[in-house]
Design a protein around this nucleic acid. Sequence first.
DNA 1: TATCTACGCC
Length: 765
Amino acid sequence: MHLGRPKTSTNTRHTSIAEEVLQLALHNGQSGLERVLVSFESKLCGTDDYTFLLRELGNRGEYEKAIKCFQFAVRRERRKTEQGKLASSMISILGRLGKVELAKGIFETALTEGYGNTVYAFSALISAFGRSGYIDEAIKVFDSMKNNGLKPNLVTYNAVIDACGKGGVEFKRVVEIFDEMLRSGVQPDRITFNSLLAVCSRGGLWEAARNLFSEMVHRGIDQDIFTYNTLLDAVCKGGQMDLAFEIMAEMPTKNILPNVVTYSTMIDGYAKAGRFDDALNLFNEMKFLGIGLDRVSYNTVLSIYAKLGRFEEALDICREMEGSGIRKDVVTYNALLGGYGKQGKYDEVRRLFEEMKAQKVSPNLLTYSTVIDVHSKGGLYEEAMNVFREFKQVGLKADVVLYSALIDALCKNGLVESAVSFLDEMTKEGIRPNVVTYNSIIDAFGRSATSECVFDAGGEISELQTESSSLVIELGIEGKATDGEDNQIIKIFGQLAAEKGGQAKKDCRGKQEILCILGVFQKMHELEIKPNVVTFSAILNACSRCDSFEDASMLLEELRLFDNQVYGVAHGLLMGCRENVWIQAQSLFDEVKLMDSSTASAFYNALTDMLWHFGQKRGAQLVVLEGKRRQVWENVWSNSCLDLHLMSSGAARAMVHAWLLNIRSIVFEGHELPKLLSILTGWGKHSKVVGDGALRRTVESLLTGMGAPFQLAKCNLGRFVSTGPVVTAWLRESGTLKLLVLHDDRTQSENAGFGQISNLQTLTL
DNA sequence: TATCTACGCC
């Protein structure tokens, strides 16, 4: 359970006496240790024996015994260099165990006692801070070397770069450090590049990672299993699974065989890309190859089954894992809690939450986030409040993710005002909202039932004192939250619990609030929070929920001030512009193509929905066909099957028209249609609510409306079927073509590019 | 000369 891997000791300089002492140290208590050390003092052979002892105790998590040995060894040693060696080792060992404060203590003592001012001690401390994510501290130590007359060496730079990776420093800044390293005449080695690759992997910068890999080859630096695994991680995190697969396949040709880490990385990559079959196939391959499973690989696969709601298989993995001597840890529980929570199995969530505590597996921030989020999303605010209270009691500190999850839950439930109160509260607690937080808020507009604009024109968050919160105080509902528990979050939860999920407020719809998004956007701008493609999708989705074309177009028009390309395209397509807008749109689509598949499909779904909603159906179809051409949705159609399960309702409808026109052209070219034709809508696993089936209903009414002869398959609720001859007959009817061809409500008639688009549509079809 | 590198859960 160390933070880091144990440092494998290839050091054989120690004597067999040291091994004997290690065994005695392990089997004796703290007090016995002193006796053992004293009695073996004359036999142990200097620093090598002592560092061996420290390292091995550290590898077994016995850091207190290691410190005792260290202090003993330093006291008996008179030579500064030898003391320095002991100190550097001790700092490294404590760093690996995540005991940064202790490591820092050893370092400072060593400095004052005159044996700590070495590049080794500094490097070890940088690494210790880095490993625990204290990047600022790590950099401070690095900078302080110059004042102490020390010159960073290769290992120091490697440690700093590694710390940057773990601390989430931007790639650009790390490259500056790398450049400084080169300028100082320090030549990078394999570990330097591996650490640089790790920086890329965090941000999913797969192209930068590939360039680094080429640079390694260019410099004649050999690759190792770390290089490949880190590169793969970057490529996987960048969502490029096909490329990752190719890279993995080339490993054996370099005599580097994929190991358990390689497989875990790939399996998780496939899972994150939604390619669960590929993920599970790799898992089977790994087992078939006899690669031993570790804690991480078990948890990776378990989380897949949990996410898919395949709990029997998830529990099988648990049993297999425990059978091989690995107990369920906090990650295992978190995955199960998330899985059961997603399916609304609250009883299981509560049972597991209690079980883990009984098993002495301490819930962590993620556990609480999950459990609170699950209950909030389900509208069970009282339970959420109780778990939040427990979370506060155990002394954990909320982070931006927890708050964002809460805010998202409230927004999804249409309670944007409460969400903004939480936003206020987190800011007061000194937690900076990020783009995810704001995306949730934006997504809430049009979803909520409240009419007040919670952001004023200047973009400031208004003071919110809702009627109901004063009501709560009067009724004393927040009574449980007294006794010095002055927590706004708990008060809001209490209020929501009392309102039974705010149902009362949900139904009163006021004026369109969509223009509030401008204020939110302005606020993001002020806080220097950069909107991303999800922000864009959220805005488009808000437009799709807005009844007023004028408000929606005004919003998009105004947003062009912030980003003319993105909002120019959305606004232009909405207004029925074509030629120039379509050229701009192409470069936007190019950018989206670089993103992972679910983000990209969400973008296409949102844009199409918005256009469809405002009657720009042909425009919607152009976008959806562009998405198909760029393979945003995998295997959308063949002559016999149309798969809509990853699409939104607008995208799906535009696609149904396109597909039917496509098979119509097959018929009119004189070819026969396949015997069986299917349209798949899925059963809603990709919708917000599992099993919702909204897409199926939408497609059903579209097909019925056109008189298309498809029927729901008897054995599969997410599948419409028909036969080739029946559909052929319908397509040949005189009125069918007119039904299938889509039109825009608005077109910019002066646009000379219209004909070009018609051609494009014909071509694509 | 002691110091440095990969995978999972919100």
